[in-house]
Every structure is written in C-alpha cells, then in structure tokens.
Nucleic acid binder design. Structure first.
Lengths: 153, 153
DNA sequence: TTATAATATGCATTATTCATGTATCTTTGT
DNA sequence: ACAAAGATACATGAATAATGCATATTATAA
C-alpha cells in the first residue's frame, strides 16, 4: 500500500517545473527562456533518465506539461500551478483501479460483500481530500525549493 | 496502490467466522461447537492453505481470533463482531508505512516538501472512515453469506 | 501411550509488478 | 548535415508479494 515511485517522480517533476516557471511558463533561470530537460531533472533528483523519460512523456500526454523535441527542446508547465489538482495527477499516474481485488482470485462472498463498497468509498475520500490541493500548494516554500534545486545537481 | 491479498484474506476469514459465530463464539453449524479450521477456509474460498495459515496466525497474534492447536483444534472470533474495527484490521495486516516514500531514493526536496504531509493526512482520512465500520457491518447480509459459505467448498 | 489432527514456524520457490537499462527512431534548431 | 532533445519499443533487474514444502509443536482421542 504505497504510491509508485513513478507517481512520486511525476510530482517531483511538477514541483521542479513550478519553481522554474516564469510568466511565460519557461524556465526563469536564464533570460533566453531555456526549457527544462530530462537531464536537468535527473541530475537534480539523482534519478534514472529512462524512468524520468517515461514520466515526462506521460505528463505530456496528460497535458500537464508541454514537451518540445529537438535541439533546445525540453518541457514546461502547460497550466498554472493552481490549476493542477493533486488528485488528478495522482489518479492518472498511479492508475485508478479499486484498492481491493474481488476477482483474481474470485471471492465467493462477492454477491453479499459489503467490504468492497466501504473500501471504495474510503478511496474516494482520500482523493476528495487531495482534490483540495494543487501544485501551487506544493510551492509554498518556493524560495527554499529553488535554492535546493539550484544547488543540487 | 492496492491492498495486499493477505489483508483481503484476513477480512474474508473474519467474515466467515462472523457468519458461523454462535453465542459462545463457536461454530454454530454443529451442536458440538466444532471450531473452524484452516482447511474449511481454504475449501470455501479456494485459497492456498499455507497462506491462510499465516493470516490465521497473524489474526491470532492480534487477538482478533483465538486459535486452538491439536486435534479438534481450530479458531473462532475472540471478540464480538461490532468490536472489530476495520481500520484496525487493515492497518495491522497491511502494515502502516507512509504511502509516499521520501527516502529510497532520498528526495532533495524533502526539507521544503509539502506533499508528504498532504498524503499522510489523506491516508488518515481513509482510515478514519474505515474506523466507522466494524465486522458487524460486513455481516449485514449474514443469511446470504451463510448460504454462500455452506454451499461453496 | 501412541496415533492423529490441528496450528506454528522457517525456509525455499515462484509470480507479479515495479524499476531500470539499452537501443533506436523522430523531431528540430543550428 | 549534425547534434541535441524527446518518443518508443523491448529487454533486463530488483523488490515484494504469493505460494509451496517440510517439520515442529500441541492437544485430543483411541
């Protein structure tokens, strides 16, 4: 019972982008508006580039970030931080299956089982709570994060 | 993000015991007060006896059931169904680690990270909700469950 | 007191899923 | 044309859950 690292990495990437973001959604650490690259993320968080690659791609498909191929390519947030709800990010990256498995192996009690509904409702309460937060909430200590990200590598 | 089958099996076992339970906490399908055995559980739910063995042992250590070794041994509920709270059962069987892993690999953002607290609170809301329910709630359709369990095998 | 039926326990093995690695393709700016 | 970036497919490795096997321990009954 734990979120996948995949999901975790996705959230870290969004946080990183959130700290870089200027008015135009580009990296602000450079006047040229350089984009953030997978390489930069990997160096900052010390992660495998292959994995980050996939997560970035996924975030792109979700239209949470915009990716640019080719030289000087990279990616940046496609929405304002306060429009990126945590429940959505986690549900999508994590996958949204029921938290309890009634088939595989099939449970004979299924037709009279009250449990699956209770767990499903609990799951929804978890996500309802996450729905109250956005990426902006993760950036409260933005200055400190910027400092961490700029010195890490 | 899913409960372990181990946890699921534990809950099924408790439900099974709940349907058998008479005034004395013994199986009521037989005047002799025969105890429920691992074998009976395995036949009913079509599970591996080794796995059930371990879950039963765990439930015993948690004092949710009382186990009896030796010939004519078995086990039965050690508490009334309405005293067995689902949050407790699930927390114990599932293990109670944080749902998000900040170390392993260590995350540089940790000192300024708002995420861990949000997820931790969401997790608590999930368990708070489960706390409202007991095994008795899982036995609402007790008659139907009894019928299922007596015909399965 | 011996056989038997039950749980207890430890170790080994298998299966599943997550995580990571390698290679190559495609795109795009220089 | 070249180089730097993401896109994609496939393969491998690692972690953990699930299961299997063997044996010990205990209690009852013949």
């Amino acid at each position: 019972m734990q979120l996948k690292k995949y999901t975790d990495y996705g959230l870290r990437i969004l946080m990183y982008l959130g700290t870089k973001e200027g008015v135009d959604g580009r990296s602000s650490d450079d006047a040229k508006g350089k984009l953030t690259t997978i390489k930069a993320i990997c160096e900052t968080f010390d992660l495998s580039s292959n994995h980050v690659n996939k997560v970035v791609h996924h975030l792109g498909r979700l239209q949470l970030i915009e990716t640019r191929r080719g030289k000087n390519g990279g990616f940046f947030l496609a929405k304002a931080p306060n429009e990126i709800r945590l429940d959505y990010v986690i549900r999508q990256l994590e996958g949204d299956e029921p938290w309890i498995e009634c088939h595989n192996p099939y449970c004979v009690a299924l037709p009279a089982c009250e449990l699956k509904g209770i767990v499903a409702r609990g799951k929804e309460l978890f996500y309802d709570y996450l729905h109250e937060f956005t990426l902006a909430d993760l950036l409260k200590k933005r200055g400190q994060l910027q400092q961490i990200f700029s010195t890490a590598s």
